[in-house]
Structures are given as C-alpha cells and as structure tokens.
Nucleic acid binder design. Structure first.
Lengths: 106, 106
DNA sequence: AGTAATATATCATATTGTGATATATTTGTC
DNA sequence: GACAAATATATCACAATATGATATATTACT
C-alpha cells in the first residue's frame, strides 16, 4: 500500500491511544478495552512499533516518565499524521458502509 | 495484532470495494479514487490478496466474468467479516478523534 | 515470603506486502 | 491494418512488518 504517509493498523491503533500520555502497558490495555477484546496487540508488536514511532518523531518520551514506566505522547507532527489517517480511514469506512447497506445479494 | 478475524488494511480496502461485483483493475482504481490518491494498491498486492480472500471464501468469482476480466464479489461470510471490521475500525477512529479534538498539547 | 500483576525488552521466525517485470487483449487513431 | 496506449491479470524474489516465546525487574497483595 503506497501513500502519503500511511500507517499500518497497529501503528494507527497505538497512535490513536497516544493523544494522551500513556505508557506501553496502558496502551495495550486501552486498545483491548476500546475494541471490546476484538483487537489486541502483544508486547513484541507494541515495543517494536513504539521504537519506530519514536524514530519517525511521531511520538516522544513524555515527562510523566519515572524509572519504571515510560510515558509517550504524540508530537505535533504525529497529531497531523493521525489526523490525515483518520480522514482516509473514514473515507474507506463510508465506502464499505454504503456498499453493505445496499444489501446487494446478487 | 491478534483478533476475532482481523483484516489487514489492504484486505479491508479490497473487501470494501467488493460489496459490488468488480474486477481487480477496477478495485485498484476505485481505491485510488475513493481516497483521492492517498491510498493505492499495486497489482502485486492486489492479486496476492485476492488469492487469499478466495481461499478464505470471503469473496468468490462472480458471473459477470468473461475470458478477459475476472469479476469478484463478497460472499455472505465475507459481508459478515466486513461488517465486523467496520464496527471495530469505527471504535478506533472514535477514540482517535476524541483524543485529537481535546487539543491536549501538554 | 510468595505469588500475581505490572511493565519493558529482545530474538528468531512467520506473515504480509511490493517493485519489477511479463504477457495478452482491447481501443483508438493516423 | 499498423502502432501506441490503456486495460487487465499474473508471478517472483525481496523487503517490510508483526508476533510467539521468553526473559527480567518491580510493585501490590495476602
């Protein structure tokens, strides 16, 4: 999938959770709760992706960080990327919904 | 990402396009148009994924198929999967939007 | 003191996606 | 009726991503 800055699902989910300061474990729990258990990201994926998001400077290590927990938050750039993603994803959901409601059983 | 039948982005996009009978090339164009060029799936990804969706029986080879074009459509099972996906994706978009609109620049 | 929950981390592997490329057919046009 | 451009499908080898298994340390609870 080639795009103007397209995120994978997992990246999107994690960034969606980081509009507020959260640490890795909290992100995992939030995603699981928000989707009622339908989506869950394990630690391997979690920390792999966090590393990448840091490198891209879409998230940063936030103050609340103590020796035990590392708290992250979207950067301004990250917010913009997320906003763009939300827009694109909404378009595709609209397309899917329109098609589905036509009840086009051919 | 572990789930009750989670689709990758590309799979989702392609299935979203197949609520009506379409052939591969048409799917590619539709996705590009619907997202205003922001998302584009090339032939390699397209046909790889179509093969997988056929095997899963989420899409099937539809009648309109002539010797030249192969037309596909969602199966009933495929519709259900897509419906479930739309639900989950909406939840995550809502989460992202709520976070974003708080304008929480800490 | 012992155990469950919290929290981060990594490695090797599995899964998924894609650029490059090939081929055939149809359509338009000079 | 020759040629180019657009349409349409297909595959391979490689790149990018995600993940199960596992390890380790700290905190909370009883």
């Amino acid at each position: 999938m080639k795009t103007t800055e397209q995120l994978t699902d997992s990246m999107f989910y994690i960034m969606a959770a980081l509009t507020e300061p959260r640490h890795g474990y909290a992100i995992m729990n939030l995603i699981e709760e928000s989707t009622k258990g339908a989506v869950s990201i394990g630690p391997a994926s979690m920390y792999t992706i966090i590393k990448k998001l840091l490198k891209q400077e879409w998230i940063y290590l936030h103050d609340g960080t103590d020796s035990r927990r590392k708290t992250y938050l979207l950067t301004e750039k990250g917010r913009e990327v997320l906003e763009g993603e939300v827009r694109i994803r909404k378009l595709m959901i609209t397309l899917a919904e329109e098609g589905l409601k036509k009840e086009g059983k051919v």
